[in-house]
Amino acid sequence: MQQLSYFELVGFGPNGWGWALLTAAGMTIAVAICGFLAGSVVGTLVAWGKIGGNLVIRSLADGYTTVLRGIPDLLVIYLFYFGGSAALGAIGSLFGADGFIGVPAFVTGALAIGIISGAYQAEVFRGAYQVVSRGEIEAARSVGMHRWLMFRRIIAPQVLRYAIPGLGNTWQLVLKESALISVTGLVELLRQSHIAAGSTRRPFDFYLTAAVLYLLITWVSTYLFQRAETHSMRGMRRAS
C-alpha cells in the first residue's frame, strides 16, 4: 500500500473519504440545527419561567440554568444518552410496549444539545425581553390586547430582534457542541474524521480537514446571522 497524497485521501476517488466527510458535515449541520431549535423552545420556556413564574417555577428555572452551566457538556450528553433512553424504556414497558423503544442517536444528540443550549438561550431571551420598553407593553394592554396576541405582535418580534446577536453566539456554541455528540456513536463530522484517522493512520490530515470544515460552517453561519441582524434592525437605523 503506497502512501496516498492528501488530496487522494480526502478526495472523492475510490480510496477517498470525501463523500463520507461531506455527508458527516451535513449530519453535523442537521444535528446542530435541530438541537438549536430544541434549545430555543427550552430557552423560551425557561426565560418565561424566570420572568413571569411564581417562586417555585422561578427557582426551578434558576436551578436548571445553574446546573446546566456548571457541569461539563460531555457529562450532560453522556447522562442524557444513557439516562434518557433508560427512562424512556421504563415508560414504554409501563405501557406494555416490548421494551425496545429505539431512540436514534440523532434524536438523543439533538435533545442533549437542546437541553444544554436551552440554558444559554434562556439568558439571551431574558436579556432581550428586558430591553423591550415597558411603555410598549403598557400601550398594548391599554388597547385591549390579550396575552397571546401581545406576545405574538409586540414581545416576540422585539425580543427576537434584540436576541439575534446573542443567538448567534449560542449557535456557534451549539455547532461546536455537536462535535461532542460523536461520543454517542452518531457519525457526524468529528466521528467520521476519527474513524478515518484510525483506519488510515493519518490523523493530522483528517483532523485538519475537520477543523477547516468546521471553520467554513462557522464562517457562513456568522455571515447569515449578520444578515439577519441588519435585516431585523432595518426599522431602527433612522433613530440612531
Binding site: 462535535a179 461532542l180 468529528l190 490523523p203
Partner: peptide, 23 residues
C-alpha cells in the same frame, strides 16, 4: 482568534495529540 473560536476544542485536542504524532 477566528480559528480557535471557530473550531470545536475536541478537534483541537485531537489535532494536537494524535495529529502531531504523525510528525
Amino acid at each position: 482568534v477566528f480559528v480557535f473560536r471557530g473550531t470545536p476544542l475536541l478537534v483541537q485536542i485531537f489535532l494536537i495529540y494524535y495529529g502531531l504524532g504523525q510528525f
